[in-house]
Design a protein around this nucleic acid. Structure first.
Length: 274
DNA sequence: AAAAGGCCCTGGTCGC
DNA sequence: TGCGACCAGGGCCTTT
């Protein structure tokens, strides 16, 4: 379930407990995630010092490089994953599949649906197959309406599906795709290749502000990161369209409609979004 | 090349 | 009360 804001808040929450620390081992209780946790992971990471923790799309990347030898732990939370910092003595509960041991503390992955991932990359991180094809980071300055417009000229697919395509822009899942299109007043069914540059500029701005608002809402949970139950899910927020089928539009009172696009639910206001 | 559908997985909700 | 059906979701993979 986590989208970019949730992943970024998680990264910020764990970063202070990881950076500079020595990895003392791993504990794996369930190897079968989205892909199996590599059998040789313990041998790869044990003894390495964590240099920094970064994010690319929804991937959390733990840099363990040392004197010219690249090494990265790749984490993905899937839909139901969460990470917590815990005391090293804490016993694993059901669905807690993986620990990164850090001496007195550990980083624990809980993921009931097991769509998440724990992988290792010993070379250049940007060339990892899961990362190499990723599109623009929506919160970076390089992400603009112009970029979206250029990337969609040949696309006949509905704009909502294009927004959720990680090879174009990363981190925008179903919730924020719906919300961003509402704020940009764009019909989610509109063919991506037929939207004007001006409309893409409105859309890029809406994506940035929607994600930033969610980040701000999640920031309040940072202080309690170690103590929280880690099941934060989505931040307490008022959505405009997501999950509001039949309820009045917050702007014009028209009932919100729901439809299916790419086997996923779309929510929109038929009056505001054209 | 792009689009559409399948698949992975489990917790929660709903109807019978 | 219990059970099965169904939905949610990211993202890769295969097929069209």
């Amino acid at each position: 379930m986590p989208e970019l804001p949730e992943v970024e808040i998680t990264r910020r929450g764990i970063e202070p407990y990881l950076t500079g620390k020595r990895i003392t081992g791993v504990r794996v209780s369930e190897r079968r995630l989205r892909w199996p946790i590599p059998l040789d992971l313990a041998a790869r990471v044990t003894g390495r010092r964590i240099v920094r923790v970064v994010r690319r799309g929804k991937y959390i990347l733990i840099d363990c490089s040392a004197n010219g030898h690249a090494g990265w732990l790749i984490l993905h939370l899937g839909m139901s994953g969460s990470l917590r910092i815990m005391d090293a003595r804490a016993k694993a509960q059901p669905h807690e599949h993986f620990d990164l041991l850090l001496g007195k503390r550990l980083l624990r992955l809980r993921d009931p649906r097991r769509f998440g991932a724990v992988l290792w990359e010993g070379g250049e991180i940007a060339r990892h197959p899961l990362l190499a094809g990723l599109g623009a980071e929506p919160l970076e300055d390089a992400f603009t309406g112009k970029l979206l417009h250029a990337a969609t000229r040949s696309r006949k697919a509905p704009i909502k599906l294009v927004l959720m395509n990680a090879s174009i822009v990363v981190g925008v899942g179903n919730i924020y795709a719906n919300e961003s299109l509402f704020h940009a007043r764009i019909d989610p069914r509109a063919a991506a290749g037929r939207l004007s540059l001006a409309r893409y500029e409105a859309l890029a701005a809406a994506i940035k502000s929607t994600l930033k608002r969610a980040l701000a809402a999640g920031g309040s949970s940072l202080r309690d990161f170690v103590h929280s139950d880690g099941s934060s899910g989505y931040f307490q927020q008022q959505y405009c369209v997501y999950g509001r089928t039949g309820l009045p539009c917050r702007v014009c009172r028209t009932p919100i409609l729901q439809l299916r696009q790419g086997q996923r639910s779309t929510f929109y206001c038929p009056a505001c979004q054209k």
